[in-house]
Amino acid sequence: MTAQLSEVDLEHHFEHTIEHDQRIEPRDWMPDGYRKTMIRQIAQHAHSEIIGMQPEGNWITRAPSLRRKAILLAKVQDEAGHGLYLYSAAETLGVDRADLTERLIAGKQKYSSIFNYPTLSFADVGVVGWLVDGAAICNQVPLCRSSYGPYARAMIRICKEESFHQRQGFELLTMMMRGTDAQRQMVQDATNRWWWPSLMMFGPPDADSPNTAQSMAWKVKRHTNDELRQRFVDMSVPQAEALGVTFPDPDLKWNPGRGHYDFGEIDWAEFKEILRGNGPCNAERIAHRKQAHDEGAWVREAAAAHAAKQRDKELAA
């Protein structure tokens, strides 16, 4: 029906689509590099959502009220849902989500460095919502315009839901700040521990981010790591002031010349150690994911056996 198009024509068509800010859809021709980049980006994002259930899941049984417990359950369930939207988007590129799970458990694919830190008190639940989800929103809003259609559509759903995540965290902290000195101290302590790791969520500085140029050209990334990090700092400072906490950075101050906040040097050695698997919770997170997967095996088998039985019954009828 269709005349065979040459590779050059296909590539030209692909570039033309991106240039005109149109979306690439699953069955379009795309360069191998684009496909690989998207699989890596989406899988890493999906894994982050799934692993991200653990630090907060840690507090579900110990939430201080039924209200907080219901909220936390809903939030952790959302993270699972976000992981599933993203695995669904990744599968449109020709990978299988069961394989992705296996690659995560085998340590062959990464997830966000932030989830390798522990949640030590209930204030951490609030700070994770405020700062970690806040940073995630900063990263994700521009991805709603990713050139890859299924990813962009998943991001739109996710961003709508993340807003609840951030607001519940901030509200929780506001309540604790109205409480006792000990509670205020818990909020400040959690803020101190999560501030720098939140800044690392945007990835290495632009000078050390070799893939950024290609990703920007393909419009799978819309802003550089440093641009997004600056935006997050600028957004967060007035929020901290409203809350009554400080960030653990003596160099953090308004720079009227730049129209932005200046901030101190990030400890990139710590970031690299975590990426190498040596963070406080790396081993625990993967071990837990593996355990959940292994312990769910009988459920998957039972469901498949039930489906087979139903099919046989239908055939016999």
């Binding site: 849902g81 939207y85 489906a307 139903q310």
Partner: peptide
């Protein structure tokens, strides 16, 4: 709205409710 894996049709409808219509 997206896709999912399920063992059979009934499970697919249930999973779709949980994944795609939480709100």
């Amino acid at each position: 709205v997206g896709s999912l894996h399920a063992a059979d049709d009934a499970m697919a409808v249930h999973n779709a409710r949980d994944v795609y219509t939480r709100r």
